[in-house]
């Protein structure tokens, strides 16, 4: 359980990181918190020739609450985001979900952005990003003169060369199990999680074999009410329900009704029907499908309660 040989790069600036990534392309892997990558290396399931350790890029460590949402830098650890009061106030689903991600020691090192790029269909954060309609900002070396306006890495532009950034919406970002839109040569510099709209609530419910394990099934829910406290929109995103986070809009099933008389059971059935869980050594697909229904109903009810309270 020792990794195969690799060249180790510890860039001091985003520009430098992008240079190495551009030069090495497919052969390079970004090393963030290492909580997923290092086990893969040690088990020799991955053998990148180059590791680009971004842990010195402290400029990427920010958790910034903007009027319309929370922008989380690539070096922000799960634990920092979980603890951030402003982030929790702007988007409570972040804290609700992060409490279910692994254990404190893993959360102390693992990064939110790393979790998104890693794109494990059993992970919580990809489902959160999908449900909220967030995005991931990717940067790569570009031709001269390409501006990177507004990016938190503008300084690097001044420091050395230029690069291209693009924001990829959650819906396009997760492309398959452990596959994301981040391509060779690209560094994910931040992710954006939209703020919670007024009169709305969120919840995350899951069943894991042990506390902190990847979930057998999990459901994040977002319920939005109108001024009369009737449901105007309700949606869930499920983990372990298919190759990528499964987003299901259940507004129709819930009905334009107050939460107390909403069609939760029908909504849960709709979610269940869309899920494509698989058998594995921990649970059958049938059990997982059942769980997704149960958890969808519980999460939707919890989210609606939050919406009423908030």
């Amino acid at each position: 359980m020792k990794p195969p040989p690799f060249d180790y790069h510890a860039p001091r600036s985003v520009a430098e990181a992008l240079d190495v990534l551009a030069a090495e392309g497919e052969r390079a892997k970004v090393l963030a918190g290492g909580q997923s990558l290092i086990p893969l290396l040690n088990m020799r399931l991955a053998a990148p020739g180059h590791l680009v350790d971004i842990n010195r890029l402290t400029g990427l460590a920010g958790v910034e609450v903007e009027p319309d949402g929370v922008r989380i830098g690539a070096l922000a650890r799960h634990a920092e985001v979980e603890r951030s009061e402003p982030a929790a106030a702007a988007q409570p689903l972040l804290r609700q979900a992060l409490g279910l991600v692994a254990h404190p020691v893993v959360r102390n090192r693992g990064t939110v952005v790393g979790s998104l790029v890693h794109a494990d269909p059993a992970a919580e954060l990809p489902a959160v990003l999908t449900l909220l309609g967030g995005s991931v900002r990717l940067a790569r070396r570009g031709g001269p003169g390409t501006p990177a306006a507004g990016s938190s890495t503008a300084q690097d532009v001044a420091a050395g060369g230029s690069f291209v950034v693009r924001d990829v919406a959650a819906g396009e970002f997760f492309t398959g199990p452990l596959e994301s839109a981040a391509g060779p040569g690209e560094l994910a510099v931040s992710a954006f999680f939209p703020a919670l709209p007024p009169r709305s609530g969120t919840a995350f419910r899951e069943v894991a074999r042990r506390h902190g394990d990847y979930a057998l099934a999990g459901v994040a829910a977002l319920v939005v009410l109108d001024d009369d406290l009737r449901i105007t929109s309700a949606a869930v995103a499920c983990v372990s329900a298919g190759p990528v986070p499964l987003l299901v809009d259940v507004t129709g099933e819930c009905g334009h009704r107050p939460p107390a008389s909403a069609g939760w059971a029908g909504a849960a059935r709709a979610v269940q029907d869309r899920a494509e869980p698989e058998d594995d050594i921990h649970a059958t697909a049938g059990y997982r499908r059942h769980l997704i229904g149960v958890l969808a109903e519980r999460a939707l009810r919890d989210a609606a309660r939050e919406a009423l309270n908030g």
């Binding site: 086990p39 088990m43 074999r209 042990r210 506390h211 902190g212 050594i281 921990h282």
Partner: peptide, 24 residues
Amino acid sequence: MVYDGHGQLLNASFMDFLMPYATE
């Protein structure tokens, strides 16, 4: 210990061999 029909141990790691944590 989850052996498949080929005699492969499918859960030879602490990710998949579920030793209980203090929380369990």
